[in-house]
Amino acid sequence: MNPLHQYLLLAAVLFCIGLAGALARRNAIVVLIGIELMLNAANLNFIAFYRFGPNPERMEGLMFALFSIGVAAAEAAVGLALIITVYRHLKSTNLEDLDRLKG
């Protein structure tokens, strides 16, 4: 098995676990955890292609992964702030309860 293949396959497995959880779970925080897992799978792909790609000295995949980690950190902060605000309004983080647009 090609070394690149095994990392891509691991990233695919990780992405699908995150996708299944994000679709199936009802708690907003667990859905956010699933999204983080999918972002990490994408990061693993960047690093695998950087490491085994044709031009590793140009560092494109590495830079992409670093910037993606930064964006994911910002996304987690804003997402959790939104969840806390929703919890203040509705006293619940269950996504099934979020069924109206009026605050």
Binding site: A12, V13, F15, C16, I17, L19, A20, G21, A22, L23, A24, R25, R26
Partner: peptide
Amino acid sequence: GWIAGGSVALLVF
């Protein structure tokens, strides 16, 4: 939810 989410994820995989 697990049946629906799991089948979509399996399809993607």
